[in-house]
Simulated scan of single mutants.
Amino acid sequence: MSEWAQPLSPSAKSQPANEPAERARELDAALRTASPPEVIAAALREVGRDRLALVSSFGTESAALLKVMADVDPAIPVIFLDTGWLFDETLAYRDTLIDQLGLRDVRSIRPPDADLDRDDPARELWFSDPDKCCFIRKVEPLRRALSPFAAWLNGRKRFQGGARAEIPVVEADGVRLKFNPFANVSREEVAAIYTLGKLPPHPLLASGFLSVGCMPCTSRADSEADTRSGRWQGRGKTECGIHTMKTS
């Protein structure tokens, strides 16, 4: 565990337990200008490693958060949602980053075959009902995967726009705390983490895929200013649901 994981202030564990919403407000106020390593260290102090998980898509900007996390504590559990529709390049990128960053506990979670056979027997929900497809392949599997945890980390950034433009650093997600260590970072700061950490880019980035999700619902971005413009093009959909539905 690195120096970042050492207490920056007295541990919150010594304080009386609060409801998640109230505690989230307190932490958000305290961490409003904190750096990503400081936010991750605070999350560790708040709930402990066994109760904290990082959720990563191993997408085009994922390596930056994973690098910062690994510098704090590479044994924090990482949850990866393998929907069954991911690009082979994403699966290979996951394996590359695990090796390069020394990640010790990456858990690849898939939707149960029984759920897919019941709800998507023809494997065409991505076309007929993309919201339901995301629900059975991402939202429900994540709910199950997060059940042992009291808090989770994710890589959303305000500069991504849309529903993400005003995310706090810490928020309540049902019974859990949700930490957004990169809420305040800029594109330039993300790029600097890649450069300084000698992080490899996602294999599809050079082909114009600025944000990568499932194959059927991912296209090349319309512009560099809107990195997520290639997701669910023409659908009026901008989020898969894991950040808009409570996971508990």
Rank of each mutant, 00 (worst) to 15 (best):
D226T: 01
K198G: 13
R123A: 14
N18D: 14
E124V: 06
R104D: 07
I167R: 02
L142P: 02
G234P: 12
R235I: 04
S9Y: 09
A24G: 05
A225H: 11
R123S: 11
M1I: 04
V190W: 06
A41G: 15
A221K: 01
A63R: 07
P216R: 14
K246T: 14
V169H: 06
E189N: 03
F80I: 00
A63T: 06
P20D: 07
S11N: 04
L196P: 07
A151S: 08
I76Q: 08
L86G: 09
T244Q: 10
T96K: 06
C240M: 03
A150D: 15
C134N: 01
L44I: 04
R158V: 03
F159W: 11
M69W: 12
A42Y: 01
R32Q: 12
R107K: 02
E26V: 13
P216S: 08
T90R: 04
R23I: 01
K138G: 10
A43M: 08
G174F: 02
F58Y: 15
L65C: 07
Q233L: 09
S62K: 06
D173M: 07
W126P: 00
T60Y: 02
D131C: 01
I109F: 00
V190C: 08
P130G: 00
A151I: 12
K132N: 10
Q100K: 15
I193K: 01
C133E: 03
M1Y: 09
A29V: 03
